[in-house]
């Protein structure tokens, strides 16, 4: 089975958010970048499928700046076979432009499965996977937390409000992964050393301008300073009074 996993380089979730002087982007000085955590589930799932089958290839594809090579190496250190970086100086806000670039690369690959994390933890865009599926006319199931594949068919489960949807699909397919699908492995030292020698192809990529313009990036409104109502159960009547008369939520 030939599997592509699309990954993204994102700022660490614990990183402090400082807005750049253009007022439209993140000031990246001192920011630590990581492999998008949701993509780790996708990489892990691909590796397990390959290991289970005893054959196959796992290809990591990323769109990003030159530094995204490190992100791809992280996935290679987990055990993927090779990487492709679609190198662009910026990742556009318009997810459809990202999907078009990835789709053009994936189309030629004849993959049985294309995996994505369900979203990236920087832009929360939640869209590139299913867009790629539409552009390539492939079946797609998003945000899966359980997966079984046998004989060109798959069954996935995805969380919906108040339940779990059971979805059957045909291969080849595009899937996006949610937490709960598996427990991603940590790259071992041996894997990290091996990853340095694995092939990583860099392809300069021209992106369309897109039709989504960033006007501003700003800090969220500060929440009004909270207050401690009191201590212990003695504070409960006053809490209720405030919720009813001041906050008016009861």
């Amino acid at each position: 089975m030939k599997i592509a996993v699309c990954v993204k380089r994102v700022p660490d979730s614990e990183t402090r958010v400082k807005i750049a002087s253009d007022g439209k982007s993140l000031d990246e000085a001192g920011v630590k970048f990581i492999l998008n955590p949701y993509d780790e589930f996708a990489v892990e799932e691909a590796l397990r499928r390959r290991e289970h089958a005893g054959a196959g290839e796992v290809v990591i594809v990323s769109l990003g700046p030159p530094a995204a090579q490190e992100t791809i190496r992280t996935a290679l250190a987990m055990g993927a076979d090779r990487g492709i970086l679609l190198q662009a100086d910026r990742v556009p806000a318009d997810g459809l432009e990202v999907a078009r670039a990835l789709g053009a690369e994936l189309k030629a690959g004849a993959y049985d499965l294309v995996l994505f994390g369900k979203m990236a933890i920087d832009d929360y865009n939640h869209q590139v996977g299913p867009m790629v599926a539409e552009l390539l006319d492939l079946p797609c199931v998003t945000a899966i937390a359980h997966l079984e594949i046998a004989g060109g068919k798959g069954t996935a489960e995805r969380e919906i409000e108040g339940g779990v949807e059971v979805v059957e699909f045909r291969l080849p397919a595009v899937l996006t992964t949610d937490k709960g699908l598996n427990e991603p492995r940590y790259p071992a030292l041996k894997g990290i050393m091996a990853a340095k020698k694995k092939p990583l192809e860099v392809k300069p990529t021209a992106l369309g301008a897109g039709s989504l313009e960033v006007l501003a990036l700003s800090p969220p409104p500060q929440r009004k300073d909270g207050r401690v109502v009191g201590e212990g159960s003695a504070a409960v009547p006053e809490l209720l009074r405030l919720l009813r008369d001041e906050a008016k939520v009861l």
Binding site: G95, A99, H126, M131, S211
Partner: peptide
């Protein structure tokens, strides 16, 4: 931006060839 809407909106946007602002 529910489980269904988040799945469906990108498909529709890609079909129409226009961007999507999610959530």
């Amino acid at each position: 931006a529910s489980a269904t809407g988040r799945d469906l909106a990108p498909r529709v946007a890609a079909r129409l060839g226009v961007p999507l602002a999610q959530d």
